[in-house]
Amino acid sequence: MPQKTLLCVDDEAVGLKVRKIILEREGYRVLTASAGVDGLTVFSEQEVDGVVLDYAMPGMNGGSVASAMKRTKPQVPIILLSAYLALPDSVMDTVDAFVVKGDAPEVLLSKIAELVRA
C-alpha cells in the first residue's frame, strides 16, 4: 500500500512537531505549515490524502482555511483540531471530523485511519 501523505497546519510549533513525529511513526508522510496561508500553498502544490488543521490561528482561522481547501479539492478529508469545544456550525459543516486538542493521540490516529485509509 502506498504511503499516505498528510498536511498538518498549526501555528504552535511544539504541537506541530509532536504531531509530525507521532504521524510519521504510524507510517505517514507528513508535510507541515505554521500558518493558514502557508497551508493553502502546500495544499495547492502537493498531493495530500488528508489534512489535520488547527482552528485558532492568527490571520486565517481553521474554518476559513478548510473552506478554501474544500473549494479546490473537496475529496480531501479535513480533521479540525481545537481546544474550543463549541465551534460555529458553519465551521463544523466544512470539515470531515473534529478532535479536541487535549485528546490522546490515539483519538486523532483513529480518525485519520478512518478517513484517509477508507
Rank of each mutant, 00 (worst) to 15 (best):
F98A: 04
V95C: 05
K101D: 05
K20W: 02
L87S: 09
Q3I: 12
G15K: 07
D93Y: 11
L23P: 04
I78L: 03
Y55P: 01
V52T: 09
L53F: 09
D54Y: 03
E24G: 14
L109H: 15
V76E: 02
N61H: 13
M57I: 08
I21H: 09
A33Q: 10
L109V: 14
V37Y: 11
A66R: 02
S67P: 01
G63Q: 04
K20N: 06
L80Q: 05
R19N: 03
P58S: 11
R19A: 04
V18Y: 10
Q3M: 07
I78G: 00
V51I: 06
C8A: 10
A35Q: 09
E12S: 07
Y84K: 12
M92A: 10
A33P: 04
L85K: 15
L115C: 05
K111T: 03
I78W: 00
R19C: 00
L6K: 05
R19Y: 01
S44E: 13
E47G: 06
R117K: 13
V95A: 06
S34P: 00
S44Q: 12
F43N: 09
V65N: 01
K111M: 08
S90W: 02
V91K: 04
G36E: 01
E24R: 15
M69W: 00
V107R: 12
V14G: 12
G36L: 02
A83Y: 08
S67D: 13
N61L: 12
N61D: 15
A118I: 09
K17N: 13
I112G: 00
F43Y: 15
D49I: 02
V65Q: 05
I22Y: 14
A104K: 11
L81K: 02
V91A: 06
A97D: 13
S34R: 09
E12T: 09
A104W: 08
F43R: 08
I78Y: 01
V91L: 09
S110Q: 13
D54E: 06
V30P: 00
